[in-house]
């Protein structure tokens, strides 16, 4: 059971190699096959997450949520897709058309690029880059730019305010987000995600780096514009912020990217802090999936429990609370590692 997906990948690889292609071409073909697998995984999860969010929100607010289409409303997701795809595609006359359209096309790309290095199980990643974590941070920060493109290109005052807020928020929270991983990297001495997971064989990093994990959760939540940090969207004040003017397929891209980001954030948290595929009895990929969904549920819980915070409070909290704490965390981790080494060399440990 543990190797089921690896075996399937092996069969496909053998099948492709059967055409007599060279080593390099087989590798590239396998990347494409894995891309399709990841894409299907992400899309299915995104569709389910949309349903789950509405349902969970319903229960948190003592109402039912979607429950009409199919048992427990499970076919609501099919209807959602059909509805999104069958709407008219509107490009506002005043919009900066090139920027407006480009933003919708590229919003999903950074998210997909993040999934490329996530190890969904032992040996189950598309490409195991040796600078995986750094790559994730580099790629995911592109989202800021694309959201601003959407806000600017729409030529709508609400969109522009949403875009501006998104930039201010995502740029600010990126710093504690990036710093929260430093402790883990100091402990493992590697940026390769599979190595980071393997280092958590005995102790998950959530035990060694609890403060970093909390910083990661808060800053990650702000990075994906969810929960109490949904100021860029703010339905009640900005209509929908940067994607007010988008419709049909283009809106679908934004919506999908939002939930794919949520899932990606949970996947990163699982990999770096919750021990990835490690766990007893069940196969590794199932453990990964369970942990990922626990984090996703936590984020939904936070979103539907806390009210939206004011922008000055948000900025103060980031620069005057989270950032000093994350810097102190690096310092304490460094001192801790050095003290531990010293005790070991002196034979006291």
């Amino acid at each position: 059971m543990d190797n089921i997906f690896i075996n399937i990948a092996g069969w496909i690889r053998d099948f492709i190699a059967g055409f007599g292609l060279s080593e390099g071409l087989v590798y590239l073909a396998m990347v494409l096959v894995k891309f399709v697998a990841v894409l299907v995984f992400v899309l299915l999860n995104v569709v389910f997450l949309v349903y789950m969010e509405r349902r969970v929100a319903g229960f948190f607010q003592e109402r039912l949520g979607p429950n009409r289409v199919g048992p427990q409303g499970i076919f609501q997701l099919v209807m959602d897709i059909l509805k999104l795809l069958s709407k008219e595609d509107i490009v506002p006359a005043g919009a900066d058309k090139l920027v407006y359209k480009t933003a919708a096309y590229v919003i999903f790309v950074p998210t997909m690029l993040v999934y490329m290095v996530i190890p969904f199980g032992k040996g189950m990643n598309v490409i195991d880059l040796n600078m995986g974590l750094f790559y994730i941070l580099a790629v995911s920060s592109l989202t800021t730019l694309i959201i601003f493109m959407a806000g600017w290109g729409s030529r709508n005052k609400y969109s522009l305010i949403g875009g501006m807020r998104a930039v201010a928020q995502m740029v600010s929270y990126e710093i504690p987000f990036v710093f929260s991983f430093l402790g883990v990297i100091m402990l493992t001495g590697s940026l390769k995600l599979s190595t980071i997971v393997e280092a958590q064989q005995d102790v998950w990093f959530i035990v060694l780096q609890p403060i970093a994990f909390i910083i990661f959760l808060i800053a990650g939540n702000a990075e994906i514009n969810r929960g109490p940090f949904d100021l860029p969207e703010g339905e009640q004040e900005l209509v929908a912020g940067y994607h007010t003017e988008y419709t049909a397929g283009r809106f679908a891209m934004f919506y999908m990217a939002e939930y794919a980001n949520l899932l990606a954030m949970a996947a990163i948290g699982t990999t770096v802090f919750l021990g990835g595929w490690h766990g007893p009895w069940l196969p590794g990929w199932l453990w990964f999936f369970i942990k990922m969904y626990i984090l996703v549920f936590g984020q939904m819980w936070v979103r539907w429990t806390f009210p939206r915070i004011r922008i000055d409070h948000m900025m103060h909290f980031n620069w005057k609370v989270l950032l000093p704490i994350s810097l102190a965390n690096i310092l304490v981790t460094g001192i801790g590692i050095k003290a531990y080494e010293m005790l070991r060399t002196m034979g006291w440990w």
């Binding site: 795809l85 069958s86 919708a104 790309v109 690029l113 490409i127 397929g249």
Partner: peptide
């Protein structure tokens, strides 16, 4: 090899949104 794989992956990721938007354009 890894980075050429990244290139292929990037191209595939850029093509996918065009398909979705195109389908929506046809259906809508």
């Amino acid at each position: 090899q890894q980075y050429s794989g990244l290139g292929i992956y990037l191209i595939a990721a850029i093509i996918f949104p065009f398909i979705i938007v195109f389908v929506a354009l046809i259906l809508g």
